[in-house]
Design a protein around this nucleic acid. Structure first.
Lengths: 200, 200
DNA sequence: AAAGATACGTACACGTATGTATGTTAAGCA
DNA sequence: TGCTTAACATACATACGTGTACGTATCTTT
């Protein structure tokens, strides 16, 4: 009954190790990018060795893919999902998302997507494609909102909706990077940028 | 008199090789980043081998530094310098710069700075620091313009000038990346974003 | 409690890319 | 025309990190 004594069953132990590795990997990927990530350092920062890492993940690529999936889910639950119930006009919703996204970007894990997207831009790599898919979801979502806003009259006409949507997502992302989480200005300026891009 | 026959003096030959290597390196750095750059590929794409590269440049780091310097000079002469004579109000000048920057970003070499900045963000690497210095020059320049605009009344009050300047530079950069040189919308939307950020 | 399974550590093989040392060709100069 | 130097190519040494094989410790099951 060693499990009861230590309070750690195998499943619990595994899950704990896995999340510790994931968090460490997210920080490392955000800081160093995919290629420059050292799996030994990732494991050591989590309190393990590369052996543990290769036991829980297939390798560097699978680890990165797991991190991307994790960050993507976190974004959707904390940024997008938190605004589902709001039933305002589309323009206000885009502005709300931009502000929530700016707040999300203050956390260190947020940089994972940006770093990986830039690193794999122009290549065709599984990790880069996973990031591109996640980004595309956000842009498509924003595109629909712009189209909706132009129908309900809250957003005036302008460039094609998908172009505007890409501009919004890109501007907010670039802006938050340069501000480096300078609250509360990041949130305010993200909003201002969206106002300008949507000609509100 | 072989030089006269081939029309290539040593100095000319060296300069030609150097620029060919620089251009190839700029494309490669923009696409693959610093770590993933393969010097053999860089040299081959320029029509040489690594021997030629190591003859003209001290190594990978020196090559990257030379590329950064070259891109920085190009930016200043084509984006900033081209607007020196215009004596409009500061707000219009910022908007002009944003538009010119968007046009500049359509070219493949523009991505060098973005790629390297993201790759070396959080580290202290000579190349990263060179990029940071170049970026800082742009931001400082923009900061002065915002301050000037608030004095001549063309830009209303708001967050600190340096914060607004960082937001402007970051937003335009992120925006142009996401649009991927989708003329003419990139230029228009960069302008719109600046209008929003400056509350014009 | 013993045997099996799972979590994790250690050691090594392998590929890849940089840097350097050495060779070869082309240009400047007597 | 022959010698010197610069431009460039080739070959080798080295370092680094990934992946994998194997060993050890901890948990589970009967």
């Amino acid at each position: 009954m060693t499990a009861a004594r230590t309070g750690r069953t195998q499943a619990h132990r595994r899950e704990q190790s896995r999340t510790a590795l994931l968090e460490s990997a997210a920080r490392a990927l955000s800081t160093y990018g995919y290629t420059n990530v050292n799996l030994e350092r990732v494991a050591r920062d989590a309190g393990y060795t590369r052996g543990a890492l290769y036991h829980s993940f297939g390798g560097k690529e699978q680890l990165a893919l797991a991190v991307v999936e994790w960050v993507d889910e976190t974004w959707h639950s904390e940024v997008r999902g938190a605004l589902r119930e709001h039933q305002e006009d589309a323009a206000s919703l885009v502005r709300e998302i931009a502000r929530a996204h700016a707040r999300f970007c203050r956390r260190d894990i947020a940089g994972v997507m940006t770093t990986l997207r830039v690193e794999f831009a122009g290549q065709q790599h599984p990790v880069g494609e996973a990031v591109a898919r996640a980004t595309r979801k956000v842009v498509d979502d924003c595109t629909r909102l712009v189209e909706a806003g132009r129908q309900d009259g809250s957003i005036p006409e302008g460039p094609p909706a998908d172009v505007v949507a890409r501009a919004v997502v890109g501007a907010v992302e670039g802006l938050t990077i340069y501000l480096g989480g300078a609250a509360p200005h990041d949130e305010l300026l993200a909003d201002q940028a969206v106002v300008g891009l949507l000609s509100l």
